[in-house]
Nucleic acid binder design. Structure first.
Lengths: 211, 211
DNA sequence: GCAAGCTTCGCATGATTATGCGCGGGCGTG
DNA sequence: CACGCCCGCGCATAATCATGCGAAGCTTGC
């Protein structure tokens, strides 16, 4: 069986070694190269054969880990990235995942969890530490989904049309009602959403998951 | 140490028994009650002391699992829900998580993973099977994140203000510029986003993750 | 060094909105 | 069988917006 080839970028020499030893202790994984910063990584990507997966720290000297991931997704989109870091702030997590990371593990993870995470990412799944999963979960969860504001079906239709870049006049035509009626619905929407402009209504509706 | 009390709703008698035995095989967990459907669960919630956590199947006779979760989050918001199911469709996953589930495991998970998942959820984290994490990840990832439209910093500020329910006049005051300038920025935003109204711009900006 | 793009502003006009006032019909709850 | 809420429409006015024309200082990059 061909082992999963893994590279590591980690500035802390101690943890770098620990990680390398851990990975090479598993026969399904081969970690041949480790780097203290993104600079060395990109140099190596120019000349060497790309690894299957890259384990990336975030708090790095020089180019930040998140930027490194962003850069990597352009230069070497074939390499999956698994973040391993101490940061568990929402911003860091979302930035890293948006930059293209396929997984995000905390350094509190056990060796076994790290090995499992690598296998999962390699097989196209995602690896998230529970704490990180919680953050991501909160993020996908839509606030309350509409019912809260008691918008009528017609009002939601109007909102959807608004968000589709239509004017009140166009909305009236599309819904087969007069512009006055469309405007009337809009007034009620303003009242229910506590806003006073089309933009505000659309913003609130989108952020609340109503549309 | 007080064990984590867990209840189970699962229509398949075989898997129900397997699950119960698995849970009670761990000294940190106590599974005293299992139900074949949501009806029995809600009846028990009326009379008995609530469990710490509920493991919930999704494909259930009578009330669907997702609806059950929704109902539970109203009737017994103190009970955490961990979904265990065979469904790995994006819709099901997001529905369940939006309904209030704190975790989502596939039935392919190992006993160890299930036990771990329960502990994680009990400790306020989230438990997601790797395949599920992948789905959730794809969902949080913002489409293109702004740069694609080449909006200037000022233009993004204007958009943010618009989404905050401000009029062009107010935006001008807040940014310390004339209304004509604010309107000018808006024109450029329209051009760059290919829209022709404030509402359309706000909708596109929000959906694209620009703001 | 100069072209290009961003940011800033004034003036003006026609289009569009926001909103108050009135009016009528339908549906579900108490 | 009212009462409240949703849906539909007209008229009118004041405010706001969209946009064309013209102009200028600044930063960025070839």
């Amino acid at each position: 069986m061909i082992p999963i080839t893994v590279w590591v970028v980690e500035d802390d020499a101690g943890f770098r070694r620990t990680l390398r030893n851990l990975l090479n202790g598993d026969e399904k994984i081969r970690c041949r190269r480790v780097f203290p910063s993104c600079g060395e990584l990109f140099a190596a990507l120019e000349t060497d054969e790309h690894p299957d997966l890259l384990m990336m720290d975030l708090g790095l000297p020089g180019m930040d880990g998140v930027e490194g991931i962003r850069e990597l997704s352009v230069r070497a989109p074939d390499v999956a990235v698994l973040v391993i870091t101490v940061f568990q702030e929402k911003e860091k997590v979302l930035e890293a995942l948006n930059a293209g990371a396929s997984g995000y593990l905390l350094k509190t993870a056990t060796g076994r969890e790290i090995i499992l995470g690598i296998e999962q990412v390699f097989h196209g799944a995602a690896a998230l530490s529970p704490e990180v999963a919680k953050i991501v979960l909160t993020e996908v969860r839509k606030p309350s989904a509409g019912e809260a504001f008691n918008l009528s079906a017609r009002e939601i239709e109007v909102l959807e049309q608004l968000a589709m870049d239509h004017t009140v006049k166009e909305i009236a035509d599309h819904l087969g009602i007069s512009r006055r009626t469309a405007a009337f619905h809009l007034e009620n929407i303003y009242r229910k959403l506590h806003v006073q402009s089309q933009s505000g209504a659309v913003a609130k509706a989108l952020r609340s998951g109503i549309i």
